[in-house]
Amino acid sequence: MSEPLGLLTTAYRDLSEVLSSLRVEEGWEPTGCAGWTPVDLGFHLLSDARRALVALNSPATGLADTDAVSYWTAWQPPAPGDEEELWSTRVAASVHGGLAGIAGRYAETSAAVLVAAARVASSDLVATQGRVLTVADLLSTLTVEAAVHHLDLVLRLHRPGPAAAPLAEVRRVLEGLLGGPLPAGWDDVTAARRGTGREPLTAGDRAELGNDAAAFPLFG
């Protein structure tokens, strides 16, 4: 199993297990995404897995125009009006059978993504969201998305967080965006949360980062 596929396998497996373990009443707890519940976030994750399945079956030609790091420059913290996306997500989630229905579909779809990823070469080019990148870089973006949202999902729930390897990939991408190392005192969970704006930088962080503090959040 290639390293990018191995990372995604771990991230998807762990996230699927958490989603499948949630009780109905836990579906309405707060998450690390402001205003989003586990039901909302679960449907967002299902949509991302469906996009991944389409991307892996959308070969591209020419040259890649983005990679595992630069992909994230387009994703910034929510802007005014983004609450409309939340409401449309909540409505769509409600017709998918709630948490149980979403968890089942996520398990099926994420498993299909892994099968599709195993059938293509890591250097193959694929298209997604109007951009072209290698399969290896696509799998990294999917791993980062899954790991960050796994942290969001378990913020108020007594469930395990993402494994060390996917979290290390989040840190690698964040450091690529920053152009240098994150503070050594941050563990990978802290790096993921502060690097994406889910936790504010402390005064000590800002002093250590210096001018680089202005770049935060690195993506959101």
Rank of each mutant, 00 (worst) to 15 (best):
T134K: 09
A79D: 02
G185P: 07
L99T: 03
V120H: 11
R105S: 11
G130D: 12
G104V: 01
G210I: 06
L153I: 07
T190R: 15
S88A: 14
P38H: 04
V189C: 05
E29N: 02
E83G: 13
R172G: 11
S58A: 09
G176Y: 03
R105E: 12
F219W: 14
V113H: 03
Q129R: 14
L63T: 12
V91C: 04
T190V: 15
R159D: 05
H44A: 08
D82M: 10
V132S: 05
G42D: 05
S140G: 07
R51Q: 14
L155Q: 12
L125S: 02
A74Y: 09
V144M: 11
L218K: 07
E84M: 13
L63D: 14
R171F: 14
A93S: 10
S70N: 09
G220K: 11
H44T: 00
W28Y: 11
A52F: 02
D188Y: 12
T89S: 14
A79E: 15
E26Y: 01
R50K: 15
L86T: 08
L86I: 09
D212K: 13
L201N: 03
R159V: 13
R13N: 12
L167P: 01
Y71F: 15
A165L: 13
H150S: 09
P183Q: 03
R172E: 11
R50I: 11
A127I: 00
L157A: 01
T66K: 00
A191G: 08
P4E: 01
A11K: 06
P38Q: 07
D212G: 08
E26C: 04
W75K: 06
L155A: 12
R13P: 01
S123Y: 02
F219R: 10
T61S: 11
L133D: 03
R23A: 14
D137H: 15
G197M: 10
E25A: 14
T143S: 09
A34D: 13
V18N: 01
L182F: 09
E108I: 07
G42E: 04
L153E: 07
T9G: 15
A49S: 15
A112H: 01
V18P: 00
V144G: 10
E83I: 14
V91A: 11
L86Q: 14
A203D: 14
P77H: 09
V132I: 15
G130S: 08
V115E: 14
S16K: 05
D14G: 15
C33Q: 04
T143Y: 12
A192W: 00
W28V: 10
